[in-house]
Simulated scan of single mutants.
Amino acid sequence: MNQPLALTLAQKAGPGLTLALAVVVAAILLAMPLLHLLPAEHALHVSAYTLTLVGKILCYCVVALALDLVWGYAGLLSLGHGLFFALGGYAMGMYLMRQSAGDGLPAFMSFLAWNELPWYWYGTSSFLWALCLVVLVPGLLALVFGFFAFRSRIKGVYFSIMTQALTFAGMLLFFRNETGFGGNNGFTDFRSILGFAITAPGTRAALFIATVALLAGSLYLGFALARSKFGRILTAVRDAENRLMFCGYDPRGYKLFIWVLSAVLCGLAGALYVPQVGIINPSEMAPTQSIEAAVWVALGGRGTLVGPLLGAGLVNGMKSWFTVAFPEYWLFALGALFIIVTLYLPKGLIGLLHRRDRP
């Protein structure tokens, strides 16, 4: 077979192969919670540890996709997305702590001799109000921050530094016991959600399926935006913002919309992360967490939507292995990975795959 004909067949098979792989991955993810419901002695049983680990990684995949929307398409490198993720987690954690406490105060408040709930805890015994907080708290913070940042035309490295300072300030605030969020211990010891035991196999399976649905919905929304006129304007903001303004567009509204949407997606991911992992504390706001998210996107290939999912899965899989086998070397491995990607894989793993398809 001559080379042009082989290339033509490969190009025709490409979309079909990609779709087939997506279907296989989706089938595996949807089968995992069902296999978790099988008896523990069954050969196909998926353990609670495996289901929790994969569910946690899927939540990180949503964060990677959200960051790709602002960095890959709008050119805004955020080093503060860990803050939005943690805020969504804390909003859900407040509800879970109220469920565990019943009519009393959460355990950490009793330990610190609090006499009553702070005003910002009012209504958190309601699941619907908790969901509103999951969306509103990171969304409003992103709206206020983005409004002033984009109005001042802050971009590039200055924008990255400001987002990193924002998440660092949030971490320091939540570390303080008097803020009413559990200090450095955060929230843990959750018992139920919507009346169901949080460690029950059925509850774990439902949370996992909800995470898969959130990831699928976020991916669909991302592709819909990327292929629309809005997505083309975002890429113009990234590549030639001054020229776009000369054409009569105001980029501030486009950047603010995608920035707030990205923050809300991170908040939803955090809300599903907390009941599956069973803890939320200020370490999730650490600047290193947001930097890791940037590594996920860079490794997978920014501006591709699918690439960041691949990067998040690969890096967190490596992290799970390193922190058990060689915990003291993980940060060195992460730094080396980032350097290799920067020097040799500027378009990430997706770019490497595309390069292999060329003649």
Score class of each variant (00 low, 15 high):
R153Q: 14
F127R: 13
T179P: 07
E116K: 14
N115W: 02
Q99W: 11
W129Y: 14
A149N: 03
F145R: 12
F168D: 01
Q99Y: 05
W119P: 11
G93N: 07
A165R: 04
F147Q: 04
Q99I: 08
P106Y: 03
L105S: 09
M97Y: 03
A142L: 02
S152L: 14
V134G: 11
L173E: 04
C132K: 08
L133Q: 12
G146E: 09
R151H: 03
Y122C: 14
F174L: 11
L172V: 10
S152Q: 14
F127M: 15
F159R: 11
A130P: 07
W114Y: 08
A169C: 05
L128Q: 10
A91H: 05
A91V: 06
P106R: 10
F108T: 02
R176Q: 15
I154P: 09
R153Y: 07
S160T: 03
P106Q: 07
G104Q: 10
V135F: 01
A113Y: 06
L166I: 02
L166M: 15
R176K: 13
F108I: 00
R176V: 06
T179I: 15
V135S: 02
V157H: 04
Y95F: 05
L117G: 08
P106S: 07
L136W: 10
F148R: 07
F147P: 05
F147D: 02
S100C: 02
A130Y: 04
N177Y: 07
Q99K: 09
S126L: 01
N115Y: 00
S160G: 06
P118V: 13
M171I: 04
A165Y: 02
L136E: 10
